[in-house]
Amino acid sequence: MHRRHWLGFVLALLSMAALPASAASRAVWTWERDSYAMLESAEEAQGALTFLHGRGIDTVYLYADAFEGRNLISEQPQRYRRFIADAHMRGFKVYALLGSAYLKTERYILPERRRDAVAMLQRVLDYNAAAPADARFDGINLDIEPHLLDAWDDAHREDLLRDMLDVSAEWMRMKQASKQTLAIGPAVPFWFDGIPVRWRGTTKPASEHLADLYDYLALMDYRDHADGRDGIVAHAAKEMDYARQAGKRVVIGLELGDNELKKVTFHHRSEADLAREMAATEAAYGESPAFAGFALHHYRSYREWSQAQRER
């Protein structure tokens, strides 16, 4: 083996070995196609869980809504029961991932789409109410991003964020009415902390309103380095501080997929780089009761990125 390839191989092994040693939880977003593949194929499911376990992942955000004309959560719930029970046996937690480019769910914040928004969450609550204890979701991650709407601009963003807060309040009311204890939280870009929103008589950053409503935030803190003014630690500072005061938690999300803007992703960096920057972030926040670990975006990118590392 060429010396450069050998060194890369050794570094990859070292980084993989280091990941499980951390005390911080690690989640991975798993989108429509991959989630359905895992639900419909035991081989796909076992391969995915083996891969994730080997990299210290302990929580799977598993897509739980319609895709390509089917909706397995309501039509074939036994597939979710089987996958979740198996994942639980292997030490994983499983969160229902709600939000979809396929369904364009950013529109669900709009008042005219409230029925769809309510039905989306209700299907997961109904599933959990009917499932055996070992096959229930442990939580829900809502990836509903109003900034993807065509109407998002400086003139309309506060109105759209109020719409998001309105539907968020309804979702949390539904959870309370269901008497279920599963944790619910949204994926939130780090820059929401710079947008003041007046809602229900109070003006504060959008991120703080959302932290007040939900059990946790999954902060889309997409940078490829921990330190500095434009780093992961700095961009999470306001959310971490507010969550600590409010008794809430923050999962720090990192990107692995390809992007023309390199600073937002680890795609161009190594697994050793990822392990180092996560360790630096954990060193900054690991003692805070608000720190709930990391979430990596996303499963398919992670596998392809890891495969590319091995082929270098």
Rank of each mutant, 00 (worst) to 15 (best):
D134F: 08
A135P: 07
A135N: 06
R136G: 05
R136I: 07
F137T: 01
F137S: 03
F137R: 02
F137P: 03
F137Y: 00
D138F: 11
D138H: 12
D138N: 12
G139Q: 09
G139P: 07
I140W: 04
N141W: 05
N141C: 10
N141V: 13
L142A: 02
D143S: 09
D143L: 07
E145I: 03
E145F: 01
P146A: 14
H147M: 15
H147W: 15
L148P: 04
L149K: 09
L149M: 13
L149N: 07
L149R: 10
D150R: 15
D150Q: 15
D150C: 14
A151R: 08
W152K: 03
W152V: 04
W152A: 04
D153E: 11
D153F: 08
D153H: 13
D153P: 08
D154A: 10
D154F: 06
A155P: 10
A155E: 10
A155S: 13
H156L: 06
R157L: 11
R157G: 09
E158M: 03
E158Y: 01
D159C: 13
L160G: 11
L160Q: 13
L161N: 03
L161E: 07
L161A: 06
L161Q: 00
R162S: 09
R162W: 11
D163W: 15
D163A: 15
M164P: 01
L165Q: 03
V167C: 08
S168N: 00
S168P: 01
S168W: 01
S168R: 01
S168H: 04
A169P: 03
E170Q: 11
W171I: 02
M172P: 06
M172V: 14
M172N: 12
M172Q: 14
M174S: 05
M174Y: 06
M174R: 07
K175G: 12
K175T: 11
Q176V: 13
Q176I: 12
Q176L: 13
Q176P: 15
A177F: 00
A177Q: 09
S178T: 13
S178G: 12
S178N: 13
K179T: 04
K179A: 05
K179H: 09
K179F: 00
K179G: 01
Q180T: 03
T181N: 14
L182F: 07
L182G: 00
A183K: 06
A183D: 00
A183M: 04
G185L: 02
G185P: 09
P186V: 02
P186S: 07
P186T: 05
P186K: 07
P186C: 07
A187M: 02
A187I: 02
A187G: 04
A187R: 05
